[in-house]
Simulated scan of single mutants.
Amino acid sequence: MNTLTAMAVFFGLLLGSGLWLVLVRMPFMRATPFTERIEPQLRSHNLESTLLRTAGHNITPFGPLERILRPLVEDGLHSLAKFNFGTTALTKRLAQAGSGKTALDFRAEQLLWAAIGFVLAVVLAFFNATAGRFNLVLALVSVVGATLGGFLFRDYMLGVQITRRERRMLAEFPSLAELMALAVGAGESAIGALDRVCRTANGELAKEFGLVLAATRAGKPLAEALQEFSARTELGALVRFVDGMVVAVERGTPLADVLRAQASDVRDTAKRELMESAGRKEIGMMVPLVFGVLPLTVVFAVYPGVAALNLGF
């Protein structure tokens, strides 16, 4: 395939994609949803002012281009939702990451990342074709692999975000637990201690405590709000903290002692993990020492004697 043929194929695909997109946007090509069919009859009953409506958020970062691609993206998202890729588990993972996005928004981002991988693979295949190194099988494998890789890489980044947030929460937990223990020891209630922590502290754990405090102010019992917080995280230290706090609130045991014990437990766990990490790194340092430094030391020690023997001969 020469350069002229490759350019003709590329621009032909571009023209075909544009014509197909225009055809899909035609009204007769799209099924009218039930909500759009009954909207003219219900419009007079909607007394909400248009000034109070919240602006719709964009799914993609392309701005005006999204108005053209939105129907296609929404149809694809609804088609994917029929296969049920674990929306409940995804919602829990988004809560663990501290993200305000819904599962549908995250799936849209995954599709966007997959589309970026697809475009990059197609551009690379086009440049290989213009250079005379086009291979159909390799091009198809690279396009499919890049598309699937972009889709899965977004999920991997979500896992990384969850891990980093959990580390920050564990690092903040001992100090916040001690602060709550001081507040409770000074005579404040559990809700008052949470309020003081939320007002004086910043961080991921303080935000979670703010959600617990907001739930209690909305009328939910403190034990139930704490159990919801425990369900949003999988950290053993925080789960034990919630269980101990719930038991202390329900049975009237001294809450300050429970908080201090939880903080001490987390600090001991952090010290143990630090020592284990140091032990693993100490073993890892043996590899460059044995295979790098030690052979070089032997060479420096043996080479002068070998050189002297050669000179003697």
Rank of each mutant, 00 (worst) to 15 (best):
G18K: 08
L72M: 08
A248C: 06
S277N: 12
A261P: 02
F313E: 08
V258E: 08
N310A: 14
V242W: 10
G185K: 08
I59K: 04
T32P: 00
L255W: 07
P33Y: 00
A108L: 05
A6C: 10
L80N: 01
F118G: 05
F11L: 15
M1F: 11
A231I: 02
R93I: 03
L152W: 12
M286Q: 03
S175Q: 12
A223N: 12
A193E: 05
V298T: 05
V302C: 05
T200R: 07
F313I: 08
M1C: 05
L222Y: 09
P295Q: 02
V212L: 07
V22H: 07
L42K: 01
V212Y: 07
D75V: 01
T50S: 15
N202R: 15
D155P: 00
Q227Y: 04
A114R: 02
T3A: 15
S264F: 04
F34I: 00
E273H: 10
E188R: 03
V122E: 14
G292S: 03
E228R: 10
V239R: 15
E48F: 12
I162A: 03
V144E: 03
H78A: 11
L255Q: 09
K92I: 09
R165D: 13
R251C: 06
G312I: 13
Q161M: 04
M285G: 05
N135R: 07
P174Q: 07
K101N: 08
M7V: 14
A308F: 07
A278H: 06
H45K: 11
P221T: 04
S277E: 13
P254A: 05
P288H: 00
L69K: 00
L138R: 06
E66Y: 02
F62R: 01
A201K: 11
G312R: 13
E234M: 11
R107E: 11
A171L: 11
L222K: 07
S230A: 15
N58Y: 09
A108E: 05
V143R: 10
T88C: 04
Y156P: 00
A8I: 15
R272Y: 15
L194M: 15
L51F: 13
Q227R: 14
F83H: 08
R30G: 00
A186C: 01
T91P: 02
I38V: 12
L138E: 13
I191S: 11
G219Y: 09
N310P: 02
D257E: 13
A218D: 14
G56F: 05
L259P: 06
T200I: 09
Q161A: 10
L138W: 13
Q110M: 13
G56C: 05
P64S: 03
Q262T: 04
V141F: 14
E36A: 00
L112P: 05
F291H: 01
A270C: 01
K101F: 09
V184T: 09
A146F: 15
E66G: 02
Q262Y: 04
L179I: 09
V123N: 09
T297A: 14
K281E: 08
L205Y: 10
T253L: 05
T50N: 14
R260A: 03
A114I: 01
M169R: 06
R67H: 10
Y303R: 04
G12M: 07
L309W: 14
